[in-house]
Design a protein around this nucleic acid. Structure first.
Lengths: 142, 142
DNA sequence: CGTTGCCTTGACGCCGGCGTCAAGGATTAC
DNA sequence: GTAATCCTTGACGCCGGCGTCAAGGCAACG
């Protein structure tokens, strides 16, 4: 299999494959004409990288998985180093999600306050039955 | 007030102020010596930008707030355009948080599966009372 | 008068993960 | 034969928000 076919089968581009190779993640054998040659194992390896990338992993973080596969394990996450990356990522995700929720709460508060100030100015003939439950917590915004 | 003092009082750098100016966000008057001159209003404006930046707003998204302040309003978020940015941002935050939680769940699942596979291989003399409640949902990871 | 410290503009660097163009060789299709 | 398609390496571009260095002006202190 040549680079174009591999890229197509993995849903990516040849540029990406060459980039991975330059980073030492995707090994390469060459045919007599100088063309890169790949097999099914390379496809599996590549799909492992792509999956992790889709999760938001940096390329370097996929390296343990790649090396695990190359070491002959059936899955890239059966090695301790890969599990460590999973755990570290979970921690980062939790931290990030927490920060984002805090920001959300702040933005939410600002919005409510600003709307209240606006309504206060435009308070002509209104029935004060509660201004409106805008900006609920928990993601139910619409 | 000159650029260095303004930067210090806003907790940022002169480079940042000149950058904002180049983006048309921070207006500039010049003294007779060519130095930039700022007043308290500029500080307020700058702090508005910085607060939004800390929230993760892009510079362009701070523009409505800046213009609102420059239009003479006491707060940058008292204008409809600013409120619209708040709301849009809330939507983006909710979407992002949702995606991250989905990713978290996936990573979590992978971790559990991989650990189970590992333990299965190393299953010598273990008491099967439940492998261990790893990777709880809801951010309580430690 | 020199030194130190602030100011000026201009321009390149960085990060990550590629996109995209260039110039040429190999293969395949007709 | 030749045109179209694949492949090769190399190199610059992009995004956002600045950091950082360069070369020089203005101010203030001793």
């Amino acid at each position: 299999m040549r680079i174009g076919e591999l890229a197509a089968r993995a849903g990516t581009t040849t540029r990406t494959l060459r980039y991975y190779e330059s980073r030492g993640l995707l090994p390469t054998r060459r045919g007599s004409n100088g063309y890169r040659t790949y097999d099914e194992d390379d496809l599996k390896l590549l799909r492992q990288i792509r999956t992790l990338q889709d999760f938001g992993f940096e390329l370097e973080e996929t390296r343990p998985f790649v090396e695990c596969l190359r070491a002959g394990h059936p899955e890239g996450d059966l090695c301790p180093a890969s599990l460590a990356v999973y755990r570290r990522k979970l921690g980062e995700l939790d931290a990030l999600i927490g920060e984002l929720q805090a920001v959300r709460a702040q933005v939410c508060e600002q919005l409510v306050k600003a709307e209240a100030a606006r309504d206060e100015l435009a308070a002509g003939a209104e029935v004060p039955g509660g201004p409106e439950p805008v900006c609920e917590l928990g993601g139910r915004t619409r």
